Simulated scan of single mutants.
Amino acid sequence: MISVSSLPGHYLLPDWQPPVTIHSFCTTRFGGVSKPPFDQMNLGLNAGDEPQAVLKNRAILTRQLSSQPTWLKQVHGTEVSTPILRDALPLEPIVADAIVSDRPGEVLAILTADCMPVLFTTVAGDVIAAAHAGWKGLSGGVLENTVQAMLSLKPSLTPEAILVWMGPAIGPTAFEVGSDVLDAFSNQSESVLCDAFIPIPGRRGKYLASLEVLAADRLRSLGILSIARSGLCTYTDPQRFYSYRREGVTGRFASLIWIAP
């Protein structure tokens, strides 16, 4: 088991208060071998980088972990990978945008480059989850599905006993969207939409959107009260983070969580 104090300084520790059995961190661009425009620590195999460089980066990352991460094939959807599903198809790629576990030592990983990574743990530290929450998955219910999967793993669990951390993502000063994105969240309250979508002056049908506001409202509607926000913007921090919106061709960083074995 690693010690948090032993992590490289360029890794980010979530600003939340999980139980001592829970480990989590977020990688940045630093510490890997990929060449521009994927420099340095690209962990995404489908971003266009040399596969051998990505595999080397993943090997570097794994040295800080209790086991190989469980990587997902993310498709901007709402499917959740559960332990039962993974056991049934152990050799198949995991096509999902969220993952839950109650198994100590199993490392859950989410790759992002503007979408929001969301980590979950119970206050008892016995069930964890990670979700990829871009606007499509968020509006489609990926967070709701993730929480439901956690509750299914532990029938006695209540939403009030779940802690959440929302990681680095494109921020509300940079995430320009159209009316189609606003319409996708029409089931949320008018007050939330007013906070989450700020009209851009002189540009009809264009807004600056906040994934954090939208996600926090959905989590609160489920009964989750402990929600920590990183407040970090991938688009405006090119030194530390990849941003697909900013660069087009770019790498992916990872947000990871596991229960100490």
Rank of each mutant, 00 (worst) to 15 (best):
V213Y: 00
I227Y: 06
L232N: 03
R246A: 15
R246T: 04
E190I: 14
L256V: 06
P199W: 04
E190S: 15
S230A: 03
D195F: 02
R245I: 15
G248V: 05
L232G: 08
Y244L: 12
Y244C: 08
A196N: 05
I198V: 14
A228W: 10
G223S: 10
Y235G: 03
R229Q: 13
V192L: 15
S191L: 15
K206H: 13
I198Q: 14
R246L: 15
I198P: 00
F185S: 01
L256H: 05
N187A: 11
S191A: 15
R245K: 13
S221M: 01
R246P: 05
R220Y: 10
A216L: 03
F253D: 01
S226M: 13
D217K: 07
I198W: 11
C194D: 15
P238L: 09
R204T: 13
L211F: 05
L225M: 13
R203I: 11
I200R: 05
Q188T: 09
V249F: 09
S226F: 12
Y244F: 10
R252H: 12
R246E: 09
D195A: 14
G231Q: 08
S210F: 02
I200L: 12
P201V: 06
P201N: 08
T234K: 00
F241D: 04
F253H: 04
E212C: 08
G231M: 07
S255W: 06
S230I: 01
I227Q: 01
L193S: 00
K206M: 14
G251T: 06
L222H: 05
F241T: 04
G251A: 03
R203P: 01
Y235A: 02
Q239V: 14
Q239I: 13
I198M: 14
C233Y: 05
P199E: 04
L211Q: 01
A254R: 00
A216V: 09
A228Q: 10
L208I: 05
L211T: 04
V213F: 00
R220F: 10
P201Y: 06
C233T: 04
L182G: 02
Y235W: 01
A228R: 09
P201G: 08
R245W: 11
C194G: 14
A184Y: 01
G248R: 00
A196H: 04
C194Y: 13
G251M: 03
F241H: 08
S191H: 13
T234Q: 04
G202C: 07
Q188Y: 07
K206V: 13
I200H: 06
R245T: 13
P238F: 10
N187K: 12
L222T: 09
D183P: 02
Y235T: 01
L222A: 09
S191Y: 11
R229V: 12
Q188N: 01
V181N: 04
L256E: 03
G248P: 02
I224S: 06
Y244N: 04
R252C: 10
R204F: 12
L214M: 11
R204A: 14
L222F: 11
I224H: 02
V192Y: 08
A215D: 01
C194W: 12
R240Q: 10
L219H: 05
R246V: 10
Y207T: 05
T234G: 02
Y242A: 01
L193T: 02
V213T: 08
L193D: 05
T234E: 08
A196E: 09
S191R: 12
S186W: 09
I227L: 04
I224V: 12
T250H: 03
S221N: 09
Q239K: 12
F253T: 07
L211A: 06
A216D: 11
L193A: 08
R218G: 07
A184I: 07
E190R: 15
